[in-house]
Design a protein around this nucleic acid. Structure first.
Lengths: 195, 195
DNA sequence: GTCTATAGCGGGATAGAC
DNA sequence: GTCTATCCCGCTATAGAC
C-alpha cells in the first residue's frame, strides 16, 4: 500500500538523482528549481536536503559519477593491438558508452559553467584524462608511421568533438542503428588521420 | 560631458545587446538577470524595456542576428570549383566566421533550450539551411566520385561538430594562429571524406 | 525521513515622475 | 529615455513538528 508519508530512503535517494539529471538535461541547471525536482520525485522541497547538501552538490554528483563510470568502463574495455585497431576500439567504445547516456552527456558538456571553480577543476581533470587516451593512440600511430596527423592535440579535440556531437542528434529508433553508426564513424575517424 | 540621466538611445541600444551576449555566454541565459545586464550597461533595470520587449526577445535577437550574419557572409563567400575546392572553401569560411565570434557561437549552441518553441523553430530552420550548404558539397563530391562517404547526412553532422567544437577550446594568442588552424582542419576534413 | 511553514532574498516586469 | 518604486512571484535553504 502506497504511503504519502514516512521512510523511503532507498527509493528516494536514487530517484532524486535520476530526476535531477532528466530535468537539468532538458531545461538546464539554472532553470530547474529544487521545488520542480521535488515535485517530480513526489516529495516536498525540504526533503531533498536529506540527500544532497545543496543544489550545487547535486550537479557535481551527476557529473562526477558520469566521469567515474566513463573511466571505469574505459579501463574494462581492452584497447589493444596496433594503433589502427586501438583507434577503432576507442571510437566504438566512445559511441557505445555515450549514445545510451544522452542526458548525462548533455549535462556534462553544457553545465560546466555552473560548477563551482573547485568542482570544475575536478571534472576538467577527469575529462583531460579521457582525452589523453585518444591522444596516446594517435601519437603512437604517428610514431609508427601508420597515421599522418598535422597536430595530435588538435586531431584529438577534433575527433572527440565529432564523436560527442553525435549525442546531440542521434535518437534511438531513427534511420540508423547503433551498429551502423559505429561503422560510419569508424570510417570517418580512421580516414581523417590516415596517411 | 558625461550625463547620468537623459537620452542615450544610440549608445544604449547596441550596448544592451553586447552586454547581454557577453553575460549570457559566460553565465548562461537562465543565470543572468535583467538587473545584472542593466548594471553592466549602466542603467536601471526598467530602462532595458525600452530596447527589448522581454528577456526572451533579447535571447532570440542575439541568436537570430548571429544566424542572419552567417547566412549573409556565406552568400558573399564564393564557394566555387570542384567539390574538393568547395569543401576547403567551406571549412575555411566556417573557421574564419566562427573563431572571432566565440560568444555568439557559445550562446547559439548552448541556449537553444531556452528559446520559446516558436523562436526555436525559426533558429533551427536557419541552422539547417547552413548545414545544407555542406551537405550539397559532399553529395556533389560523392556523385562525381571524388569523395567516399558512408552517409552524407552523418558526414555533414560530423564535420560541423568537429568544426564547431573548435570554438570551445581555441583561444586567441594560443599556440597556433588561425591560418595554421585552418590548414590543419582542412587536412582532417578533406581526408575524412576522401576515397 | 518527510512534512509544513517561513526566512531572506532576488527574479521579471510595470507605473508614473522627470 | 531614464529614473525610482513597487507588485507579485519564485527561489534556496532552514526550523521544528510528527
Amino acid at each position: 500500500m502506497a504511503r504519502k508519508q514516512g521512510s523511503h530512503s532507498e527509493i528516494t535517494g536514487p530517484k532524486v538523482l535520476d530526476t535531477a539529471l532528466r530535468l537539468i538535461a532538458r531545461h538546464g541547471y539554472a532553470a530547474v528549481s529544487m521545488r520542480q525536482i521535488a515535485a517530480e520525485v513526489g516529495v516536498q522541497a525540504g526533503a531533498l536536503y536529506n540527500y544532497t547538501a545543496d543544489k550545487q552538490s547535486l550537479l557535481f554528483d551527476l557529473m562526477q559519477s558520469h566521469m567515474t563510470e566513463l573511466q571505469a568502463a574505459l579501463g574494462a574495455a581492452d584497447l589493444r593491438g596496433d594503433p589502427v585497431a586501438r583507434l577503432d576500439g576507442f571510437t566504438r567504445f566512445h559511441i557505445r558508452f555515450h549514445l545510451p547516456r544522452s542526458d548525462q552527456v548533455f549535462v556534462s558538456y553544457m553545465e560546466l559553467r555552473n560548477l563551482s571553480p573547485q568542482n570544475f577543476a575536478t571534472i576538467e581533470a577527469m575529462r583531460r584524462e579521457y582525452e589523453a587516451t585518444l591522444e596516446n593512440v594517435l601519437r603512437d600511430g604517428v610514431g609508427q608511421g601508420v597515421f599522418t596527423v598535422p597536430d595530435t592535440r588538435i586531431a584529438t579535440m577534433a575527433i572527440i568533438a565529432m564523436l560527442t556531437g553525435l549525442s546531440n542528434w542521434y535518437r534511438e529508433g531513427g534511420r540508423l542503428g547503433m551498429a551502423e553508426i559505429e561503422d560510419i564513424y569508424c570510417n570517418l575517424v580512421q580516414k581523417s588521420v590516415s596517411r
